[in-house]
Write a protein that binds this DNA or RNA. Sequence first.
DNA 1: CGCGCGATTGAGTAATTTCAAATCTAGTGG
DNA 2: CCACTAGATTTGAAATTACTCAATCGCGCG
Lengths: 186, 186
Amino acid sequence: MSQIFRKHIEEITPITDSEFEYVMSHFTRKKLKKHQFLVQSGEYVKNDHFVLNGLLKAYYANDEGKEHILQFAMEDWWVTDYQAYFKKVEANVYIDCLEDCEVLCLSLQNRDKLCADLQKIEHFFRVKSNFGYVALQRRILSLLDQDAKGRYEELVSLYPSLLQRVPKTVLASYLGVSRETLSRLS
Amino acid sequence: MSQIFRKHIEEITPITDSEFEYVMSHFTRKKLKKHQFLVQSGEYVKNDHFVLNGLLKAYYANDEGKEHILQFAMEDWWVTDYQAYFKKVEANVYIDCLEDCEVLCLSLQNRDKLCADLQKIEHFFRVKSNFGYVALQRRILSLLDQDAKGRYEELVSLYPSLLQRVPKTVLASYLGVSRETLSRLS
DNA sequence: CGCGCGATTGAGTAATTTCAAATCTAGTGG
DNA sequence: CCACTAGATTTGAAATTACTCAATCGCGCG
């Protein structure tokens, strides 16, 4: 099972058996059922999470109770409230399991320790973060440049499996349109 | 002048004189006049850029000739087309000087070399990238949750100097609204 | 003075939202 | 197997918001 994780690291940097074992010793494993929360707004956020299987949504709920999805997370993805995690402030998002999930948890302390001990791991996280930054820029461009239909098509072409796994209502709140508008597209 | 840059690094990690000198030897300095381009769509992007002074905009121009600003960059900020830079593909944005500028240029090769040689620097870039990721998430949330007025107020409260330095037309294309709509706010 | 750029204003149009109701679907318990 | 229910999706119609296109205004500078 954690071979998934090893493969994930080795897409960026090779790693020996003993190094991998050392890395793994800094993670804890956690199982969650559908509808359980990994993070709740107002809490402090101890861990970053690598998704072994399942699907989650990270969303912000505004004063009127409207939800805006910041990111999905499925197999191979990382998810937490990064603002809260890195800056040690209270979370302002919820992270909710859309399916039963299994994740690997990494505290900030252990992350920093791993990065200090193994430059490979610091390199890994640097490269990951760079790619994440690029992905967010693409999403911003999509929000600025495309209409609802264009954004929807971009999303399903990037992540076709989402269409099978989540209700359209949820996609709408990722795309920034009402569910009625999304329903009327095409 | 490069003291600005040293201070910038030391906000993340302390660094010795000789280390700093070594780091600096991997950068080149470049001056640009207002209206000059640092990056143009279609080119390959050799360098990331640290802004010593001046102000730039990085924008995407779509088929209808509409501009969407991906980011501004002023003193202390980094800017390039990160997708093009990291993935070695052609740029799809323009980066344009809104004022006379002076920047420090870092090629990907030199960046990787510095990171490999000095773990401090790899750490620096990891932390920077993490913070950048958080900032982009905040902007996405702003685009999803706030209306034009809310986004405008958030922008001017975060970067009040922008208001003095760039025409409102340009702010509008950062915020994702027409200049007429922005003009009608308040 | 007059040019050019940016900001503003007006009017009509297009897109999206909201609210409401109807329909569809999958899962549950009898 | 069927009826029922909750959630999801669709549809309609009115209201809102933002956009486009066009004209005007204001100001700094050669």
